[in-house]
Design a protein around this nucleic acid. Structure first.
Lengths: 125, 125
DNA sequence: AGACCTGGTCTATATTCGAGACCGCTCGAC
DNA sequence: GTCGAGCGGTCTCGAATATAGACCAGGTCT
């Protein structure tokens, strides 16, 4: 029993909603950065994940925090420090995500070549 | 040598551009569907990937085709059939993606619970 | 004192998405 | 033969979303 309970391919399945939230450029890069560089504060993450705006960083982090993947800790020093770290659930996920990043880096050239070929073939129309 | 050549975290790196294209709900689900159910025609994919519009399906498939991940074949029968299948590059990627889908299905409940807890904690403000 | 870093929020604009109409073609039912 | 449906798309429109950048109240550095 409980096989087939959840299905990411089904539009109305809760797991699909979760998948749609996680299958996002910034969320994935944030988790990968936390996995690769350890706990980081807000501005470290912003520098680590090149090109992310403060708004999207805040938004994605809140989402990850809400889903129990990331822990946000405020150290009440002066000035206060805010540090983000992976929770066990987030670490599990990040371990599936990191290979994806490495694969992309390793195959970027092949994909770029395919794109040029495709574009050349379709320019002749 | 050639270590550090590509870096998905760098905003201007070609691999990051590729990553941004692939780290997309529909592209990932399409690759996963092709990996799980084998070659499929356009309308089969549309039914398989619940909730995708024809527009986004076309767009994502073109993108995957352009990057050399997916092969589009038109069988000149009457009426013509259009079949999409994974190329080796796409199959490699799909093999990293599928675990992600299964993980999401397996941990959806935990994440939903975390969300409820988070929302409850922040409603008391 | 003036400039910068911190962790954000807010707004205005640009981009993207989803819903649905439309298309020409072919098939099966009536 | 004609009505409706399925095929593989394209086009358009309004709504949702992303990006860029200003702003903020503190504290630190020079």
């Amino acid at each position: 029993m409980r096989e087939e309970e959840f299905d990411v391919f089904a539009q109305l399945c809760p797991s699909r909603e979760m998948f749609a939230d996680l299958a996002d450029k910034w969320s994935m890069l944030i988790l990968m950065s936390l996995a690769a560089c350890g706990p980081q504060r807000f501005s470290e993450l912003q520098r680590g994940v090149g090109g992310v705006s403060r708004k999207m960083l805040t938004q994605s982090l809140r989402n990850l925090e809400r889903s129990g993947l990331v822990l946000r800790t405020v150290f009440p020093e002066t000035p206060p420090r805010v540090v983000y770290d992976l929770l066990p659930l987030g670490r599990e996920l990040a371990e599936l995500l990191s290979p994806l990043g490495r694969w992309t880096e390793g195959h970027a050239l092949q994909m770029l070549a395919a794109r040029e070929e495709f574009d050349a073939a379709h320019a002749r129309d």
